[in-house]
Each structure stands twice: as structure tokens, then as C-alpha cells.
Nucleic acid binder design. Structure first.
Lengths: 111, 111
DNA sequence: TCCATATTTCCACTATTATGGAAATATTGG
DNA sequence: CCAATATTTCCATAATAGTGGAAATATGGA
């Protein structure tokens, strides 16, 4: 069931620190950030952050890769794309006037 | 703080029944559905559903309007638009190659 | 006014989630 | 091998969210 994934992603994002982590990583781009820097940036103890990174990672929203002593986390752009598609997919059953302004707003916010 | 609203919307959507309610109302379109029909469709007791509708409504994702004995709920398309914008807004700081495929996927899922 | 219908509010109980101290694991350099 | 650094896992406690029975409120019709 596809909605299980969407649900886990929404749950993962539905928490202040995790939403901040995700947005930080989205901003950081493909290079990502090490866990320690995220912890400092958000002022969260490393073990607490670790649990939160794990939740985001299990939901597929971020990915971690060890690089030396650090673990570098990056946003998974495909996942957020999939989530947006899931939220939108039944939005315009023949009524393009409903969804066109939504896409236009997203488009202009992005590029 | 704009993220408070986004957080309440993500929390509202991060629950099986509420996500189902929201998607049902998105599909139902501008005419919406009465609370009772939603309760039957999702097989949830009316008082439980009422609490869930309230959470979605407080987050601004749906709106209820009394019509006779029923209360008709409709999806708030502006709210979901705003949430998508919030999740996307810092996604491409000069790197259009990151966000373009995301928007393209959303576009094709929608219209 | 009285009754049936539709939905909500109140409230207590249960379940899930968040948090961070302490200890464990992994890596690099000396 | 040992010490330092980076991060995670384990675990117990605290906080938040979900659930539905029972009663309350709102509306429309006889």
C-alpha cells in the first residue's frame, strides 16, 4: 500500500526538529551535511538528533553515508517528489482549474 | 512563524484516517461531503471522526459549512498549495536541475 | 412542542512518540 | 594498541495523540 510510505513521510516531517533537519538538508543540496553539524545548527543533543535522523531516513526522506568519522546526510529529492505527487494525484478529475493554480504556485516558489 | 502552520498541517495529515479524509475530500472536489458520509466511507465512529475533522480544520486543510442538519466539509486547495510551496521553497538555490524534475512529476501526476 | 437525525463536546483510558543520560560502536591518527 | 572524535544504541521516563462511550447541541419536520 503506497499510502503507508506517504504516511511515514508525513509523520517524519510532522515534528519541529525533523522538519528543520529536512529543510536544512534540502537547502544544503547534494553535498549534504554531517550529523554533527546538523546537531549544532539546530541545537539538539547528538543522541536525540540521531533518533530523528533515523526516522527521516527510514521514511526515505534523507540518506546517510559514512565519510571518514562523520556520516553525511543528504535530502532525497525523489522522496519529496513522490510525496507531493501522492498528495496531488487525484486533485483534478477533469477540473484543471483546481490544480493549475496549485502547480503554478509551486513552480514559482521553486524556480 | 510560517513553519508552525506547515507543522500543524503535516501533523494533521500524518494519521491514517485523516490522510484518507483529506484525500477523499480532494477527490470530492468543491461540492465536498457531509461528515456522516465521510464516517461511513471510512468506517469510523462519528465522534472519533469529528475529532479528526477538527484537527484537519484547525490546520486549515479542510473547511466545514453547515447545510441543514449536515455539515459539509471541503478540501482547502489553497492550504495544500501553501504546504507544497513551503516544502519546496528553498529547493533550488541556483540549481534548477534539482527542482525541475520534481515539478515535472507533480505536473504530470496532476493534469 | 416533540421527535428523529446529524454532529459535536466531554472525558477518561490507552497507545504512541519524544527525549536525553549512559554506554557502545566505528573511524582516524599517533 | 591507545586516545580522541563522531555517531549510534539502549533504556526509562515524560509528553502527546488517538479512541470511543455517554451526553449535549443544532436543525428540520410532524
Amino acid at each position: 500500500m503506497e499510502s503507508k510510505l506517504a504516511l511515514s513521510q508525513l509523520s517524519a516531517l510532522a515534528q519541529e526538529n525533523r522538519l528543520a533537519v529536512f529543510r536544512l538538508l534540502v537547502k544544503a543540496g547534494p553535498d549534504g551535511l554531517p550529523a554533527g553539524e546538523i546537531a549544532v545548527a539546530l541545537d539538539v543533543p547528538p543522541n536525540t538528533l540521531s533518533a530523528q535522523l533515523n526516522i527521516l531516513s527510514n521514511a526515505g526522506l534523507i540518506e546517510g553515508a559514512r565519510q571518514g568519522r562523520s556520516i553525511i546526510y543528504t535530502a532525497n529529492y525523489d522522496a519529496i517528489s513522490g510525496l507531493i505527487v501522492f498528495l496531488m494525484e487525484d486533485c483534478c478529475q477533469g477540473r484543471a482549474e483546481i490544480c493549475t493554480p496549485i502547480m503554478a504556485a509551486a513552480q514559482s516558489a521553486c524556480c
